[in-house]
């Protein structure tokens, strides 16, 4: 059983939380210009790594707020908990974010605003 440090309520038992799966999947803005295969990357494909995984969690039985968590799927060690809409701050978390196959997908490229050059943290919705 995990002891999860809710950013609002403090340390609580895992049973109070629900896991929302992989984090940092940005929705393509002009999805009608994407191929079905590229859109499927966004819609259906989810990572299932052995090791550090960036996930979304929700304090379902408590404050009902979402947050992001960097968790090791082997040891269950929680490396970092960080707010929705932001990127991990720990070195391991940054590496895991940058190393994800999703960073290279057409779906993620299409999620960037047309102006581009926006800092990476702003294009993510967690």
């Amino acid at each position: 059983m995990l002891l999860i440090n809710c950013p609002h309520c403090g340390p609580r038992e895992e049973s109070e939380f629900s896991c929302g799966g992989e984090a940092h999947i940005a929705r393509p803005l002009a999805e009608n210009t994407l191929t079905d295969a590229a859109f499927a990357d966004y819609l259906f494909l989810r990572d299932n790594p052995k090791g550090l995984f960036l996930e979304r969690w929700r304090h379902a039985a408590g404050c009902r707020r979402w947050f992001n968590m960097a968790r090791d799927t082997v040891t269950h060690e929680i490396i970092e908990i960080y707010p929705m809409g932001s990127l991990p701050k720990t070195k391991a978390g940054k590496v895991a974010h940058a190393a994800s196959w999703r960073r290279e997908t057409a779906a993620e490229a299409a999620a960037k605003p047309a102006k581009a050059k926006a800092p990476r943290a702003k294009k993510e919705n967690g």
């Binding site: 309520c9 609580r12 049973s15 109070e16 039985a61 408590g62 404050c63």
Partner: peptide, 10 residues
Amino acid sequence: CAQSLLSHAG
């Protein structure tokens, strides 16, 4: 105060 579960009940 806290919101939690008491034997599965919120």
